[in-house]
Design a protein around this nucleic acid. Structure first.
Lengths: 116, 116
DNA sequence: ACACAGTATCTTGCATCACAAGATACCTAC
DNA sequence: GTAGGTATCTTGTGATGCAAGATACTGTGT
């Protein structure tokens, strides 16, 4: 798969963020790994070598459960579904991200030294 | 030093972001390391074990130059000043961050599955 | 003189997480 | 059977933030 939109994009920026992205997509609908890569790559480049370990981590932590489902042309798909704990985590991490991004923006957009 | 505002804050979120934060503060005025920690910690918790390696990296990459200056009560301060390359880097990374944050927000704020 | 706190710089070892590259396997079409 | 698209997973590497500590200068209190 290869669905990036040109730029290499700073890898470091993604640290920790891809987890909340996955949780957020799963909050809308159950997905299988390959599908998640395609879905998220519309906005942020992500590779399969990233998604599978991430999904296994989320399962180990009890934030998702899985079920297998046949597919037309290919091996069976492993779907991931958010648990209650996963929904709570999605909400908390989203809040955290929003606050973090706001803090960074406040730092970057300050045009004068005198400010506070 | 200890200037955080309560929360532990997701460490992973900071990866790569602290660099643009440092560049951004230096774009306003020359600073020494200890001062940068205090300045940035108003918004985002950062430790000294992070700032010094980061500043050395920026110097190795030619984005900053340094000069020593006596201080009233304590050892001399090493001030960091942005180079032309540093200003360019500051601008580019800021653009990159803004676009990245916008992409993440777009993913997180999508309320319906049907969207695109 | 001595100890201690505040200021200031720097280093070492550790943890986390994304990625590239590749292995595996299923199915369809040629 | 060979190639390509679908799909999952693993291994090793790299980047970078942190805790903890070492170093050193200055001023204050005893």
């Amino acid at each position: 798969m290869h669905t990036n939109q040109g730029d290499p994009m700073n890898i470091q920026f993604k640290k920790g963020v891809l987890e909340i992205c996955v949780l957020s997509v799963l909050a809308h609908k159950d997905c299988y790994g390959y599908e998640l890569v395609a879905e998220i790559s519309k906005k942020i480049d992500i590779s399969e070598g990233t998604i599978y370990p991430l999904l296994h981590r989320l399962k180990d932590e009890g934030h998702v459960t899985t079920y297998l489902q046949e597919s037309a042309g290919g091996p069976p798909r492993k779907y991931y579904r958010l648990t209650e704990s996963g929904r709570k985590e999605e909400h908390e991490q989203k809040e955290e991200w929003m606050q973090f991004a706001a803090s960074v923006n406040a730092l970057l957009e300050r045009k004068n030294d005198a400010a506070e």
